[in-house]
Nucleic acid binder design. Sequence first.
RNA 1: AGGCGCGUAGCUCAGUUGGUUAGAGCGCUUCCUUGACAUGGAAGAGGUCGUUCGUUGGUUCGAAUCCAAUCGUGCCUACCA
Length: 896
Amino acid sequence: MLPPPNVTGTLHMGHGFNQTIMDALTRYHRMLGENTLWQPGTDHAGIATQIVVERQLDAQGISRHDLGREKFLEKVWEWKEYSGGTITKQMRRLGTSPDWTRERFTMDEGLSHTVTETFVRLYREGLIYRGKRLVNWDPKLGTAVSDLEVISEEEDGFLWHISYPLADGSASLVVATTRPETMLGDVAVMVHPEDDRYRHLIGKQVKLPLCDREIPIIADDYVDREFGTGVVKVTPAHDFNDYAVGQRHGLTMISILTLDGHINDAAPKAYQGLERFAARKQVVADLDAQGFLVKVEKHKLKVPRGDRTGVVIEPMLTDQWFVAMSKPGHDGKSITQKALEVVANGEIKFHPENWVNTYNQWLNNIQDWCISRQLWWGHQIPAWYSDDGRVYVAHDLQEAQKLAEQDGYRGALNRDADVLDTWYSSALWPFSTLDWTGDEAQDAKNQALQQYLPSSVLVTGFDIIFFWVARMVMMTKHITGKIPFKDVYVHGLIRDAEGQKMSKSKGNVLDPIDLIDGIELDALVAKRTTGLMNPKQAESIEKKTRKEYPNGIPAFGTDALRFTFASLASPGRDIKFDMQRCEGYRNFCNKIWNATRFVLMNTEGQDCGLLECSTQAEGYLKFSQADRWIVSLLQKTEADVARAFQDYRFDMVAQSIYQFVWDEYCDWYLEFAKVQLQLGSDAEKRATRRTLLRVLETILRLAHPIMPFITEEIWQTIGPMSGRQGETIMMQAYPQSQPNKIDEAAENWVATLREIVVACRSLRSGMGISPAEKVPLIIAGDATRLSHYTAYMQSLAKLAKVEIVSDLPEADAPVALAGDFKLMLQIEIDVDAEKARLSKEIERLQGEITKAQAKLGNESFVARAPAQVVEQEKGRLATFSADLQKLEAQLQKLAR
RNA sequence: AGGCGCGUAGCUCAGUUGGUUAGAGCGCUUCCUUGACAUGGAAGAGGUCGUUCGUUGGUUCGAAUCCAAUCGUGCCUACCA
C-alpha cells in the first residue's frame, strides 16, 4: 500500500520513486508466488483540489459562489476525471503493476459510506464531538485547518511595548506584544505570581487603552518573568496560550475579528471594518499618539501560515467537529493509546526503525483533531440540525429524522454544510478500499478484506507520518480492531541536484515522464514557467533551466529511471537526484541488451544443451570451471538480493544485480564463453550455451522487479530458449539461491586466471603496448594447472602465444607475479623504466611486510586476536615476503 | 528548547555483527572502433600511508565502524507574549 496521489495535478518525482519501490516489492513478492495486491487509487485532497479548480474558474472571472455548490462540485468532478486519468496514465508509463480492477477514489460511494459509518460510530461512542473551540483559521480560504496544515516559520517582526495604566491611576504596567491589534480583545493582563515587581498589583484593574474597559491583573505561572516586561496581555479569543489561560481563570472571550480577517463590531467604532494588518497600523499609531506606546523593538517571531495559501493563520473561535484523541473509547482505551501500543509491541514495524521516535513523540503530545472544513469539496458531515440548534448525527436524513422524532422534534432538519478533512477519509484507506462495511457478517464473507487487512507493507515518505501513517493506525485499529499494515517503509524526499526541495515556485521540478521520454529545452522551459503562482519568477526559472539543461533532457527510459530510484534508496537519507547516475543506468540497460545479442548470436539455432542429461549419452554436457564459477556467483548474488529485499535495501538490490551483470557476467564470463565456443568440444560448447542462456534468463528474472520492461522484452525470446514456459516473466518464479551450486574450487580457479590476465594487461599497459598488438608471454609455474589457463589467457590478454617454463629466463623483459606464477612479456623494454616499476612494487611490498611484522610482533595481538585473524596475517606476511624475494631477484637480473 | 539524520575520492553515494591494500557510479588521464556493446573495452591517477573517513578524546591487540565531547550542516516537533 502506498499513499494515494492527490488529484491535484500530475505525478512528480516523489511519486515516481514511491511507486518504483512499491512496484518492485509487488513484483518481487508476486514472483515469489505470494498473493499480492497493490491497492491503487487517488485521494480527493479537499483544500488543494478546491483551490486548483477555483483558480481555473478565477481565470474566467467566475467565483465558486457564482456557480453555487452543486455546479461547482460538477466542475471539480470534471477536474478529478482529468487529473485522475493523467495520474493512472503516468503510473502505467512507470511500469507499475497494481490491481487496476480494485482502483479506488476517496470519494467513491463505497469509501464515502465508510466515512459516514465511522463518523456515526465515533460520534455515538463520544469520540467525535462538536464544539466552539479556538482553531487554526485560514482567513483566505475561510476554513479551519488542522495544526499539521500550519507552517510556522521565523520572520522579522516587532515587539511593541504598551503602557496599561492602573485603574486607580497610581501607576501603569507595560505589556509587550507582537500583535498589538489583538489588544482590542484583551480581557486581562497577567504576571507571574511570584514576580516581586508586580505581586502587589495582582487583583487590581487596569484601564485598557483605546477601549473603554477595565480589565483585571491576574497571576499565572505560565508567564516567563525574563521575557519582555514580564507582563502579558491576555486575549483568549485570539491566541492559543491565552485561550488556555482564559479557561483556567474563567475569563470571558472577546472575539474582535470577522472570519475574513477584519475587525468586527465588538471593537471600538474607530477600528471596525479594518483589515487585520491595517488595524494593527492604526492601533499602533493611536497608541503612540495617546502616549501609550513605550517602545518598539525588532523581534524575530514564528509566524503561522497556511500551507496551501501562505496567509497568516488566525486562531479563531468557531464551531467545529473534533476527534477526541486521548479520550477512552468503548474498550477503555483512547485511539492514541492503541496506536502507540501496536507500535510499541512490535505489531507494526518501521524501517528504518528510528522513525518510531517521531511517531511516538507526536502521539504523546497529540491534540484533538479538528476534522471539519468550511469547504465544498469533500465528504459532507453527516449531521443535521433542528431549527433550535439540536444536532442529530446519522447515516442519512431519514435516520436523522427518526432520531429527531424520538427527541420530540418534528420540524425541518438542515444538514451541516461543512465537509471533513481529507485525511479523515485517508485514515480509513486501509479498510475502506477493501470494501469494509462495518457489518460483521458481510465483512466476514469479504475475502479481500480478510486476506489483505492488515497488509504487509506501507511505502511512504516521512513527511506524512503524522498526517497519514499515524492516523491510519489510529482509525484502522480503533474501527476494525486490526492494524492496517505490518511494516512501514519510510523513504526520504527526492531533491534536485543541489539538494533543494523540488517545487513549482522554485522551478526545479522534474516530471518522471520527461526523464523517461526526454524533453526538448523549450518544452521544459514552457512546462516550468506556466501556471506559476507568481508569474514574476518565470524569467529567473527560464534562465536557470536553460543553464542547467542546455540540450534539454535526454530520454533514459523507464527501466533506467526505476533502477536509479532503487539504487538511490539508501535508508534514512534524502535523495539528490543525479541525472548522470540515471545516464549510467541507461547504459546498464544497454549493456544487458548487448549481452543478450551476444548470447542470441551464439545460441540461436544451436544445441544449447537443454535436454535432460539423463536421456543423453554420457558426455552430452561438459561444464568448465568458468561455467561453474559464474553459476556459483549467481547463487551468491541471488542470496544477496533476497537479503536486500528482506531488509528493504533497494540500493543493495540494485548494486548486487549491477555488479553481477556487468562486472562478472559481461566482463568475464562472456569472454570465457567466447574461448569455449571457439575451442571447446561439442559437449563443452553445449554446456557453455546452456550456461550463457540460463544465467542470462536468471538475470532477467532477478532484475525484473526493478526493470520490468527490458526484462520482459528480452525474456519473451530468452525465456523459451532456456526452457521456460509461460506468457510473461511477471509470473515466473523469482530466482532462489541454491547453495549446492556454490563452487569454491571453481571460484578459486577463476580468481587465479583473472589475476594472471590482469597482470598481463597491466604489464602491457605499463609498457605502452597497443591493445591491438598481440605479444608472446612466458609463464613459470605448475605446468599442469597452467595448461588449462593458456587458451583463456591468450584471448583475454591478447597474447600471441603462451610458453610454459619451469623458471623464467634471464632477459630484459617486464615481469609480474600472479599467485604462484611468474609472468614475463617477451618484448623489448626500457630497462630503467622497468627497474623503476619493479622498485615501486618492491617498496609497496616492503611497506606491507613492515605492517604485518609489526602486528605479529605485538604480543598482545597474537595472544588476544582470534587465531583465524593471526593465521591470516601470517599468511599475508609469507606471500608478501615470497613476492618480494622474486621481484628483488628480477631487479637484480636487470641491474646486471 | 527537544528529537532525528548527515559529514568517507573532484561530484553523488555504499561501507552489514570492529579484522587483509576503505569501495561503486560519474568525472579525470593514457591507449584502443578487436566479431555483444564507443550508451563500449583496457590500464591508471585520485582518500596528504607514518598524522586516512569533520575534529578531539576514550574503549580495544585492532576503530570509518563502538562510547563521550565538540564543530559544521539539514530536517522534524514544541514554543515566550
